[in-house]
Amino acid sequence: MPASMFKPSLRIALVGDFNPAVIAHQAIPQALDNAALEIGVRADYDWLPTPEVNSPEDLVGYDAIWCVPASPYQHDEGAFIAIRYARENGIPFLGTCGGFQYSIVEYARNVMGWKDAGHAETESEGRLVIVPLVCSLVEKSDVINLAPGSKIAAAYGREEIEEGYRCSYGISEQFAEAPGQQPLAATGWDNQGAIRAVELTDHPFFVGTLFQHERNALKGRPAPLVEAMLRAARE
């Protein structure tokens, strides 16, 4: 077979506790397959249950890491290890819904020095950087305004999108007001100014969204951030 017929192969770690009843988990393989076809690569993915992620060595060899929805996770530390490994080693990373929330906690603890940062779904003490939303976003869609020049805006090719959610927790005001000049930047907001997406400005591709755009694959629509993650992994 001519060399030109071979497609680059990418290894993707899907960090989270697979549940066939979770709609996002049903959609993720299709979103990856569609994105891989679109950009001309082969995406081989492994579901890594959080109890099986016990050290950075468990992530070695993966070209990208996706911390998937459906939290709380069975083993929170497994999710935090994966997020930190991707952040510190320049590994393309996507965190959606629960993955977004846990990436905020990880950043607060290990970059901002808020060692007591926590998630209100599983903790009641400390600086809760993820708290219940004023209005639940379970099975709801909403408009998100994207920062000009951001990676997420580039992926979508526009600065206003509408996506669906299945979540009841988001970023606290305390955290939203704190990062300032930190590399972690808010790059997506709803019409009321609540943060719905973040990215690291000093990382090849590290994006977190509260919404679950991967579910578009079940409706025959593209998942732009999955394509962008694979493009970053290919490079």
Rank of each mutant, 00 (worst) to 15 (best):
Q26K: 14
G113N: 02
H203W: 01
A82S: 13
P183S: 02
L128A: 07
L146A: 07
I144P: 02
G193H: 11
G95P: 07
R42D: 14
L128P: 05
H213P: 14
F211E: 08
G188M: 04
P8N: 07
A82F: 05
N191E: 13
L225E: 01
F18Y: 15
F80N: 11
A3C: 01
L184D: 08
Y62V: 01
L184A: 05
Q181N: 15
A35P: 08
Y62C: 03
Q101V: 09
N34V: 03
L10F: 04
L137A: 14
E214P: 01
P2E: 08
I12H: 06
R84Y: 02
T209N: 08
P224R: 08
A35M: 09
D46V: 12
N34E: 15
M5F: 13
D33G: 04
A178S: 13
V53D: 13
V105C: 12
W66Q: 08
D46M: 10
I130N: 01
F6C: 07
A154H: 10
E173N: 14
G208Y: 08
H203P: 01
A228W: 01
D17G: 06
A194H: 15
A223N: 10
A185D: 04
F18S: 03
A13T: 10
N191H: 12
G118C: 02
Q212W: 02
L32A: 08
G188K: 04
A120M: 12
Q26I: 06
N145P: 00
I39D: 09
P148H: 06
E38I: 01
A13F: 11
R158L: 04
M1R: 08
G149N: 06
E123S: 14
G170C: 02
T50F: 11
E162Q: 15
N191K: 14
